[in-house]
């Protein structure tokens, strides 16, 4: 049986989603966080919690990454860099905001040099609250994002029209 063009497209989409959900590579960017969330992210990938069992790999370069783990309230200095890292990531890309600061500015929401949360700068797909969130919470957040990908919700950020984001 020869599949129609649309049929092949469905097959390819399924393979793409399967690959994406089973092996997401993450990059971590600290946009002015206090380090508390960053050490918990590192604890998440080390043996006790071992996020790698979900196929998640911490990656150094934004050009290789699928998911951006972002911590901190986004300082004015780091804003430009955060945007640049986000733009360097290939489509489709997903952003996870980790910690109270990344959600809303947290303890630093009144500081003169902070933007007040990652979603003020780039669109965010998953929010993980806590100061800092426990490694279990980070795992839960990443797994929820993966489930969301599996159901095909907002699988292609690039497909959305401007203004439709978040």
């Amino acid at each position: 049986m020869i599949l129609s063009e649309k049929g092949w497209q469905t097959v390819f989409d399924r393979i793409k989603t399967w690959a994406r959900v089973n092996s997401p590579w993450v990059i971590h960017f600290n946009s002015g966080s206090c380090n508390g969330c960053d050490i918990e992210i590192l604890a998440t990938i080390t043996p006790r919690y071992d996020l790698e069992r979900f196929g998640v790999k911490l990656q150094g370069s934004p050009r290789h990454a699928d998911i951006l783990l972002c911590t901190g309230p986004v300082t004015r200095q780091a804003r430009e860099r955060l945007l640049r890292v986000y733009e360097q990531m290939p489509e489709p890309k997903f952003v996870v905001a980790i910690g109270s600061c990344a959600l809303s500015g947290g303890a630093f929401h009144d500081c003169y040099n902070t933007m007040g949360g990652v979603d003020q700068v780039i669109p965010v797909d998953a929010y993980i609250p806590g100061c800092p969130p426990r490694p279990e919470a980070i795992i839960d957040g990443v797994v929820k994002l993966l489930q969301k990908l599996q159901q095909g919700e907002k699988a292609e950020v690039g497909d959305q029209k401007p203004g439709e984001l978040s």
């Binding site: 300082t75 780091a78 860099r81 040099n113």
Partner: peptide, 14 residues
């Protein structure tokens, strides 16, 4: 340096 400068010392005065 200064990418993580949030301005804590100023906030402390408030």
């Amino acid at each position: 340096l200064g990418y993580a400068h949030r301005g804590l010392e100023k906030l402390a005065e408030k």
